[in-house]
Amino acid sequence: MKKFFCQLLSHAILVLFSLSMVIPFAWMLSTSFKKPHEIFVFPPRWIPREPTLKNYLDLFRAVNFSRPFFNTLIVAVSITVLSVLLASTAGYAFSKFRFKGRDKIFLLVLATIMVPGQMTLIPVFLIVKQLGMLNSYAGLIVPGVASAFNIFFMRQYMLSIPNELIEAARIDGAREDYVFFKIVLPLSRPAIVTIAIFTFTGSWNSFLWPLVVAQDERYYTLPVAVSVLAGQYSENLGLQMAGSCVVILPILVFFILTQKYFMKGIAPLTGLKY
């Protein structure tokens, strides 16, 4: 009986928070199907009385989605793969290697996220220009690959992997790459899935950098292409919301497909004996 009550309470709390997460989004979705005069009706109307597809039709008429979609996909996938690889190797080194200056170098890595991005925008732009990477996929991808956030996360996660496991393998004569790929990586699956999802989402939504780096519209990503339409006076709220829904839909699908690995990450752990 007590157990049932606990379960009920826990679900009630989850439902409450989930609702608060969903409501702003639901309003966004519902607005994207509304005609202008219905948007500001009070009290809020969740289901449009005269639903319309006009916002979406306008969007698809004005924006040629195929190229930006393709660009965003290339950029987001490349950044995610490279970033996860670099972050897990570096995270492993910072958590399990012993070398001189390890903690100092780690703090230096961390320090790179302590200066707001606005401050480094112009210098990074100038560097990318010097490297001749303006207006290219390289310019869109490379500056986003090394992520101090991901390195930090992987390091923290790997800290909780028992040292004995790794030491045992090393004593058996395993090389570091073997230890990393065969022991550390499988154990870190929840963390890898987590940062992969976050990195993918972040680079999918990234807006300012792709805009600045693209010298012509062929290199526009989805968020940039869509935001061109959002007017100066944000006059077309419905259109704006439709644009936003279109941008996030693919990531939602991606998340739904990948998040089950959140759970699976636990399997190899319980199976191991140590």
């Binding site: 807006f207 300012l208 805009l211 600045v212 693209a214 010298q215 012509d216 519209e217 940039v224 935001s227 061109v228 959002a230 007017g231 100066q232």
Partner: peptide, 8 residues
């Protein structure tokens, strides 16, 4: 013509 979003 390169279209630039007003917001940025």
């Amino acid at each position: 013509i390169q279209a630039i979003p007003w917001s940025a």
